[in-house]
Design a protein around this nucleic acid. Structure first.
Lengths: 125, 125, 125, 125
DNA sequence: GTGGTCTAGACCACA
DNA sequence: GTGGTCTAGACCACC
């Protein structure tokens, strides 16, 4: 898979990396058991500090998206339900709030944001 | 208008304030030329640091939502757009993409994500 | 609360800190809403790098034990069920496996380990 | 004796090997003076790196569980204790404390933790 | 070679 | 003042 970081973005680099991996996993671009590039390799490729990549991987491991086999590397984990319904909803809300907030800052109306979201979700089907 | 801040929220306080003002402007609750409460008055009312309110106002002024008339206070400005249409859309997409992938990783369906988003935007109206 | 780190321990420093906070929370030594010492203050007190303390806090925040209010500090969070039954069991197993492994390395028998565990749990009642 | 390694486990492979040998010695499956398979033979059998087996043997030799007879191989040693009773107990307590606090934070009761621990130790017998 | 941990020191966002 | 992020570079455990 191809990961890109936008240095000027407001999103933290480790966050950009984690989000793109998440997206690749849900889109099927990455499959269960696939090996991730090593921390050092990806860091070199993205021209960022290895610790930054490690932080992204750590978050993904903690959320059950990746699994680490010490000394061997990180791998895409079997999908498992880690969080309770309430916690999942809380996290979804947090993500949606951030998007809404960004949309409002950009002076989009509620309707425009919703329409764009709908279009985006239709694409995935 | 009535502004409320939720201290425990993950959103920064200045962000909560700015978003609510923005929303009030978009919804018509605040009209062009309306006077905003002074930084000190609003800070006292919300029991937050005046710097925090000032920061929210600064962002709104920077984005052209408010206008500062030195010595008189801040007023709701005539609408103007700072970013190009393309740039605004690009930024909105980025924010929505992050929310969508977060939702999908959390094992929500497209429909669930959209429904939740819709509910959230309804609340704002 | 008083936190101590044992530099010679096999457990990572950030892990020792996180575990002690966890213990203080479940024992009631720390209550909901209590403010944690700031990252810098605790780091100075323990004579460790602030990043190490920050890493411990980050883990506790991620697990829902603490909450961070940006610019204000970290606070003991309301207890909420973050993980599914299966995930909680998985995590408990992981913790117990580590303890059993440590016990076996120390040449204790299964019965001795269990007896010691039982005594320890009785104390808590 | 039959040793099995689980690659996906969170426990290090050398640790799994060492623990199983330890258990076999404690349970009497291996008796004093019994010859262990050579590092190379066991490595081939388990399909792991010989260094990994060597590391497990080294730990067992260091802890006095095995004895190395240069040129002849490794043998089950006469039992002797490396740590004082007090030191062993202190270390066991440390490990058990960590497991207990992890369990309590995960909202398990003392009884649940104990039951799970018991089940786990039964399996080992 | 791999990931895991820790240090030192920097800059930014926020209150 | 607070936490959040990032860099650079080190050492260790493990394969």
């Amino acid at each position: 898979m191809q990961i890109r970081v936008i240095p000027g973005s407001s999103a933290a680099i480790y966050r950009q990396i984690a989000d793109q991996v998440r997206r690749a996993v849900v889109s099927g671009e990455l499959s269960i058991g696939d090996a991730m590039p090593s921390v050092r390799v990806l860091a070199k490729e993205l021209v960022v500090n290895p610790n930054t990549v490690a932080k992204a991987y750590a978050e993904l491991i903690r959320d059950g998206v990746l699994e680490s086999q010490p000394g061997r590397g990180a791998f895409v984990a079997k999908r498992r339900n880690v969080f309770t319904r309430a916690e999942r909803t809380r996290r979804l809300d947090e993500a949606l709030d951030a998007a809404v907030s960004a949309g409002l800052v950009l002076d989009f109306t509620s309707d425009e944001i919703l329409a764009r979201m709908q279009a985006k979700l239709e694409e995935l089907k």
